[in-house]
Nucleic acid binder design. Structure first.
Lengths: 268, 268
DNA sequence: CTAATAGTGTCTATTAGACAGTATGTT
DNA sequence: AACATACTGTCTAATAGACACTATTAG
């Protein structure tokens, strides 16, 4: 017999901790078109905030905030999301809770990270002064992940090693190899989110949260490609999404080529 | 311009909260064989603990405990897991963090739930007095979920309504319709875990954490069937798991039929 | 004409589902 | 022989990958 005590030992005084929520706010940025005939490049992008105080002053971090005592975690995440974007009814999901001992050098802070996806065209208000969109480019080779973040003024480079935690499932953790400009453990949180969305893109309709109401299949395919990090074949792509979209009457002429039909997301 | 303030307002005093971890410890129980020729029925089962104190005194809950100030969340989960099972190196994964305002009637407690899978045959020590394995039977029709938990002395019945939170992904929440014997929001946590494992069974090797070192394909198939809640066709099942297992020399005679080969999990 | 993207047809390879059948033990 | 499970062969249906082709616009 191993232990006869009650599972939760409620006799001792209970330690209390600061709780925060940090948000991975993802979107898609349109780059420059090479010439008038080309489609613009697309980038998967994330909203980061420049820290104005120590610790990590001047470095970039995820938008976040402490959980208030009249708020659920979801409500706290929504508050931060609305504060940063001034948008409501945005897709978000809880990502993971990070509770390492020294993730904040001041005091112990446990953070529940959320991931949100927005259509950047819905943004009407300017960003706050310290916030900025960074284009993400990601490549991985032999479990070494390189992330480049670019907001056209600054370039951040992060290297992470993917460490397999369990062989039966695809459970990883990440070891930061190089990171000079992302505060706290937020590089780790970012990578957790990038893996999550990559998996969800394959077997859910999550990408449509990044799309405007009307879009072309070419644009949609670009988003899939930029998140999955590989080219897709047109016929295969169109087969797969055929029953997820509705063709509309609208067409769009984007350059020196056949105009394309605009589609809408077909909700179930 | 929406808000120029720093994202984390660090000037105010920060609220602090009690943090706990609750564990879904899953395993497989062997039921009675109908006759000497049949294989024993298998049940997917979970370890619950009877509460000895108010609130919810006498009701069943998940094993859990408060996070200590020198522990990460993972460490706290491991501590609870070892306390309940006396086992080490058990598969576990973080499930979700529940932070509703009134989930504990005493004071606000945020809990990070973990899910662990064990091979019950590895258990050598007796359970603690208040702990007991409950066989799970689950059925769902028209988004109404019925869960029956049975430890051969008590039967617990839970009904939950599955509420679709988002159409693009398969994101649900659950509304408890009926629950007379599971404490706190643990019925909700249980259902979150059941959905998680069902999804993981399809596209990972997670089930092997429930298996002993040597097993027959019939037994393995039973586990898949009991978790997925449906019968599988033999040839299709064997095709899918063919490259996940290694055939060994061992065979086993379990009754009035052809003896079956024993297999091992083939790690990648 | 060319360049660029839009969009389709079709062949093939792979995978999933279904069912029938054989194998080998106990009672 | 009857039964229960172990295990295999094979047909078919559905899906994924690959490539070739046509369509339509601007310049």
């Amino acid at each position: 017999m191993i232990n006869r005590k009650s599972t939760k030992d409620e006799s001792k005084t209970i330690e209390k901790y600061a709780l925060s929520t940090d948000l991975l706010i993802f979107s898609v940025s349109r780059g420059e078109a090479k010439d008038c005939r080309s489609l613009s490049d697309k980038f998967f992008s994330i909203l980061l905030v420049k820290r104005t105080k120590e610790p990590f002053k001047g470095m970039w971090c995820l938008p976040g905030g402490f959980v208030k005592n009249d708020e659920t975690l979801d409500m706290a995440a929504d508050r931060v999301l609305t504060k940063e974007t001034n948008l409501h009814d945005i897709y978000k999901e809880q990502l993971y809770t990070f509770g390492d001992l020294d993730r904040d050098p001041r005091t112990r802070v446990i953070t529940t990270a959320y991931m949100a996806l927005i259509d950047k065209e819905k943004l009407t208000d300017e960003l706050s002064l310290e916030a900025s969109w960074f284009n993400i480019s990601l490549n991985e080779k032999d479990n070494l992940i390189n992330i480049n973040l670019d907001n056209s003024e600054e370039q951040i480079h992060i290297s992470l090693k993917r460490i397999i935690e369990d062989e039966t499932t695809n459970k990883y953790k990440y070891e930061v190899v190089q990171n000079n400009n992302v505060a706290f453990d937020h590089a780790n949180i970012l990578m957790t989110g990038l893996d999550r969305i990559k998996n969800k893109v394959r077997d859910t309709d999550i990408v449509f949260n990044l799309m405007p109401e009307y879009f072309t299949l070419g644009e949609l395919q670009q988003i899939y490609e930029v998140i999955l990090g590989k080219k897709l074949l047109d016929p295969a792509f169109r087969r797969i999404i055929a029953d997820k979209v509705i063709k509309t009457d609208k067409t769009i002429k984007t350059g020196g080529h056949r105009p394309s039909a605009m589609f809408k997301y077909k909700r179930k």
